[in-house]
Design a protein around this nucleic acid. Structure first.
Length: 318
DNA sequence: TTCATTTGACCGTC
DNA sequence: GACGGTCAAATGAA
């Protein structure tokens, strides 16, 4: 029994390695940038599926062509750009189906229609001041909450309708002296994912390095995608000074500001969303677990998306 | 004129 | 039935 499990793990490991290596090799090959990116992401998606044990009948591995088909078939404003949402849709097919069903219902007469987000991706941040977190929020409601002196303000993403961004947050004053505000975020901003694939440069300085390091372009600060990320890092420093930590899920470092309400890694929560779509505001420093159990598969994609990545580093955990 | 905020109503969940 | 999240008309600000 143990052997079969081990065999399974090793077999999966080999396949993951194959997929990741294939993805890395695509970077050195020919073809259009868009096609290459699609193929690479297809391989990484497959690797994740294997790692998650989801390569079953209902969730086949995806090919780069499939991703390409999806990305070009959607209603994206810019058909030449690869939309990370689509890959997320492939990887998290269950979520995708659920969303499809939801969208099938009419939008009229849906006041108050919502699902309580008990299990959704949420986290809180306590601050001493009402600080602008630099993201586009629009207030859509205010409510008095039971057993609370102060009303709760509800915000949604400014680009909710333009980009179908599901990010919402609510802010509530939880203390008077000194004033303390608790901001609870739900879902990540997907409105900043309109990243042009053509701007993803595969930068391999040597043939040897090309098989070892995968780098998605230089993190140019003037790129909207990365500039938002870098500005966020600055903001994080500000928040570290004026924020306190909640203890629901104590991180390893003392200066963490926010609390995640699900089991995703810190990095995934705040740098890249679990559905691989979003760079979120600020967050705790990245980590890389040293055991297989702690190893979060999504870290792989997170780091791939952020910048350089040591493939061997991943493979040693497989 | 456009866009953001306010506010009461609606309605799903507990 | 209470609570809380969202909607949308009314209102205000730029």
């Amino acid at each position: 029994m143990e052997w079969s499990w081990l065999e399974s793990v090793l077999s999966s490991g080999e396949r993951v390695k194959e997929e990741l290596m294939q993805g890395a090799c695509f970077g050195g090959g020919g073809g259009s940038a868009e096609g290459l990116v699609d193929k690479i992401l297809g391989s990484f998606a497959n690797a994740l599926l294997i790692l998650n044990g989801k390569e079953s009948d209902d969730q086949k591995l995806v090919s780069g062509d499939q991703i390409q088909g999806i990305s070009s078939g959607g209603g994206s404003a810019d058909s030449s750009s690869w939309d990370a949402n689509h890959t997320a849709a492939v990887i998290k097919s269950e979520d995708f189906d659920e969303e499809s069903c939801k969208s099938a219902s009419t939008f009229k007469d849906r006041r108050g229609s919502y699902k309580r987000r008990k299990t959704s991706h949420s986290w809180t941040r306590d601050t001493l001041t009402l600080t602008d977190d630099g993201l586009g929020w629009r207030k859509y409601g205010q409510k008095r909450i039971l057993n609370s002196k102060h009303s709760r303000n509800y915000y949604r993403c400014t680009h909710k309708f333009e980009h179908s961004c599901k990010a919402t947050k609510y802010v509530q004053q939880i203390q008077d002296h000194p004033p303390m505000f608790r901001t609870t975020y739900h879902d990540n901003h997907t409105c900043r994912d309109y990243l042009k694939a053509s701007e993803l440069v595969l930068d391999c300085t040597s043939p040897r390095e090309s098989s070892k390091f995968i780098r998605f372009g230089d993190t140019k600060q003037d790129h909207p995608f990365f500039s938002s990320f870098t500005s966020v890092r600055k903001e994080e420093l500000v928040f570290k000074e004026e924020s306190i930590i909640k203890e629901e899920k104590p991180p390893t470092s003392d200066d963490h500001v926010m609390t995640s309400h699900d089991n995703h890694s810190w990095l995934c929560d705040y740098l890249v969303s679990p559905d691989l779509t979003t760079f979120e505001s600020s967050g705790p420093p990245s980590r890389f677990s040293s055991t297989l159990d702690e190893f979060d598969h999504e870290d792989v994609i997170s780091r791939l998306m952020i910048g350089s990545f040591d493939l061997d580093e991943v493979l040693q955990y497989i």
